[in-house]
């Protein structure tokens, strides 16, 4: 009995319920999915082992390759624009003494809205019947007469814009919190030395919030892999696969075409991709980076 009351085990007892839930919700389905990727399972009924056929087909699937390419674009877009805008905005907000709360709330507000609500607002904004295009055309301006969500050249960027618009407020709050942790005496010293606002940002703020910055880069990179909701609601991956990402393609294979085995192979590829990213950050940590 004593062995079960050992102090070193108490922490495990508290973790155990969560571990069990993870086992049933994450681990078992993930392992099942890995196994299904080697079959021709159609979502129900019998399944046959087909080896690596799904993976071979996947590398020959032009739409899967296109979806991977779109995910890479998506990741780059999210690692640059929202991060840059949020950093600048957070830094500027630190200089505002009155009304800062209003701005923080305003920037963060889209993040609190459900994705369906955000998407519906933007869809209506660009509707060719009720949207801003029709309002502007009333003033003789020929702008936004067609929705960017339905134009193959812009659809991916339009969806990324809406998702980024909802997401960047979250980054502002994180960066702002990081910036408030910076010792104010550093800025006072910089002021005495006559440093400009940019120099203070470049040589004090940025290095001091590096752990926060790297953390956000890591989560953005990981979150960009299973991106689904905004793409699915706004374009369903279309038109003509122009905004298809791995998540929506996997959904289409599983639930529209009943190719569950094939879809599991896509999921397996996503899993390995995330593993590589996490592994990469692990290596950086071992190299002494503050990750």
């Amino acid at each position: 009995m004593k062995i079960f009351l050992n102090k070193s085990l108490i922490a495990w007892y508290f973790i155990l319920p969560v571990l069990l839930i993870h086992l049933f919700v994450i681990a078992i389905p993930s392992i099942s999915s890995l196994a299904l990727s080697l079959t021709d399972f159609r979502g129900m009924g019998k399944l046959n082992y087909i080896g690596f056929e799904n993976f071979i087909e996947l590398f020959d699937d032009r739409y899967f390759i296109k979806a991977v390419y779109h995910n890479i674009i998506w990741t780059i877009a999210f690692l640059t624009i929202p991060v840059f805008v949020a950093l600048v905005c957070a830094y500027l907000l630190t200089g505002i003494k009155r009304g800062q709360l209003f701005f923080r709330l305003a920037f963060f507000f889209p993040y609190m809205l459900a994705s369906v609500v955000n998407c519906q607002i933007w869809k209506y904004l660009f509707s060719p019947i009720y949207g801003i295009g029709t309002v502007l055309s009333g003033f003789g301006l020929d702008l936004f007469t067609t929705s960017p969500f339905t134009t193959k050249e812009y659809s991916l960027f339009a969806v990324a814009f809406v998702d980024g618009w909802h997401f960047w407020g979250f980054l502002v709050v994180i960066y702002l919190t990081g910036m408030y942790q910076v010792d104010s005496s550093l800025y006072e010293a910089a002021d005495i030395e006559g440093a400009s606002k940019y120099q203070k940002f470049r040589y004090i703020t940025l290095p001091m919030i590096r752990p926060v910055l790297v953390f956000t880069i890591m989560i953005i990179t990981i979150w960009s892999i299973p991106v689904f909701d905004y793409v699915f609601i706004l374009t369903k991956g279309g038109p003509a696969y122009s905004s298809e990402v791995i998540g929506t393609y996997m959904y289409s294979q599983a639930f529209e075409r009943f190719n569950v085995g094939y879809s599991s192979a896509i999921g397996t590829m996503m899993f390995f991709y995330v593993l590589i990213i996490v592994g990469l950050f692990g290596v950086l940590r071992r190299l002494g980076w503050e990750v």
């Binding site: 019947i129 067609t146 929705s147 969500f149 339905t150 134009t151």
Partner: peptide
């Protein structure tokens, strides 16, 4: 259909009935 391919993609059930 609805004037252009892009408009056809952008219009839903309620909108095309109303139109």
């Amino acid at each position: 259909w609805s004037g252009s391919l892009e408009n056809y993609y952008a219009i839903d059930w309620d909108q095309f009935h109303d139109a």
